[in-house]
Computed example of a mutant assay.
Amino acid sequence: MKPQIVTFLIKCPDQKGLLAKITNFFYERSFNIVSCQQYVNATENTYFMRIRLDAEGAEISRVVLENSFVELSEPLQIDWSVYYGDDRQNVAIMVSHTSHNLYDLLSRNKEGLLDCNVKLIISNHDKLRHIAEMFNVPYYYLPVTKDTKEAQEAQVMKLLDDNEIDLTIMARYMQILSSNFINKYPERIINIHHSFLPAFQGANPYKKAYERGVKLIGATAHYATEDLDEGPIIEQDVEPVTHESTPFTLKRIGADIEKLVLARAVKNHLNHQIIVSGNRAIVFPEAGE
């Protein structure tokens, strides 16, 4: 039987004895520590921890565990969150014209490489419905114009709430979300931008990259914030290109990078490997899970 894994993400002011106090808390409650990852930002005097626990043998309810941890956390000024391994997250994918990210995410999910429930796909165009049907995922076509943006976003938010969506993935959804929308789901919207941010923000980055004569082409996955393409960066990658590259070849190369970067970012989020601090994302590597 697969062990019940509990994951705590912890952020607090750095101070002596943190590791001992936290690990001893779990030892006293019969948890087995599977992995413990730490990072100290000396510049900001901030301590980060991702600790994974095997709950077998720990005769304690979730409510009692969390209430007890509050007692530990308050004097240490710990900002924390906890996740339980048997709670599978619900995911929505938003997309416009291009299919590569959508198809890749659905394929990985079907193969068990992304541990989540893809509950629905939302698009402002109807051209990718056939992909949703291939994977038997409900597809909602919600067209949008400048005049209907507010009403369309209200429809989208209702779908997300009705389906209890934990994470929304903007897999090249080519609409700018309103502040009202983004602020309702903080750190729960991942966007893929088809350039190596902070270079070439906004629209048509491949055309801008061609005109600039870049020697590297890249992609960036980040949490969506009110500031366009400036949210906490989760994953990035690049590929070398030459002066012979055209806007078309840059776009083709970039599409492959986008798929890998977005899939890694989504997996990091689903595995609870990310702690956001200000506008930075602290991303812990997989620890043998």
Rank of each mutant, 00 (worst) to 15 (best):
S179Y: 10
M94R: 09
L106Y: 02
P240M: 14
L65D: 08
N109M: 04
K184A: 13
L159D: 04
E111V: 02
E235C: 14
Y173M: 04
F31L: 05
E150C: 09
A55M: 06
D54E: 09
G17K: 12
S61I: 11
I78G: 12
A265H: 07
V144G: 01
A132Y: 00
Y83W: 15
Y139Q: 00
D14W: 05
R50Y: 09
D126H: 14
M134L: 15
T148L: 06
C12D: 09
I10E: 06
L72S: 00
G288S: 13
A287H: 12
R88Q: 14
Q273K: 09
I190S: 03
T23D: 04
L76N: 01
V156D: 01
R280D: 05
E235A: 14
G202N: 03
S35G: 06
A92N: 09
S99A: 15
R108S: 12
P143T: 05
K215Q: 08
F135A: 00
A55Q: 10
V276L: 02
T46R: 08
L72M: 04
S277I: 03
I274N: 05
Q201V: 15
Q15D: 08
L128N: 08
H97K: 15
L9N: 13
N24S: 15
N32G: 13
Y185Q: 02
L106A: 00
D147E: 15
K184N: 13
E226I: 11
E111P: 03
F8V: 06
R108Y: 07
L9M: 02
K21R: 14
F181I: 11
K127W: 07
M174C: 10
V118K: 06
M94W: 08
M170Y: 11
A219H: 02
S81W: 00
P3F: 10
H100M: 03
G17A: 12
Q175T: 07
K119V: 05
R264P: 02
V156H: 01
H100N: 10
N24E: 12
N41H: 09
G85V: 12
K21Y: 03
S35D: 14
P285M: 11
I121F: 01
P247C: 07
I275G: 03
T246V: 07
D79P: 07
V91E: 00
L216P: 02
A58W: 07
Q38L: 13
H193C: 06
A219R: 07
R50M: 03
T23M: 08
E28K: 15
H125E: 12
L53A: 05
L105G: 01
K158D: 11
V34I: 15
N279R: 15
K146R: 13
Y206N: 06
E59Q: 11
L113V: 01
P186K: 01
S107C: 08
T46A: 13
V118A: 03
I93S: 02
L128E: 06
Y141A: 01
A209Y: 05
N101M: 05
D161C: 05
A171G: 02
C36T: 13
D104W: 07
E244F: 14
P240G: 12
N163W: 04
S30N: 11
K11H: 12
S81K: 12
V261W: 05
L9R: 02
P247V: 10
A55E: 03
M94A: 05
E74Q: 14
E289S: 13
L19F: 14
L128A: 06
C12P: 06
V137C: 00
D147H: 09
I122P: 01
L216D: 06
Y210E: 08
K119R: 15
F196N: 03
S73P: 12
T23F: 10
I169G: 01
R252A: 14
Y173G: 10
F181Y: 03
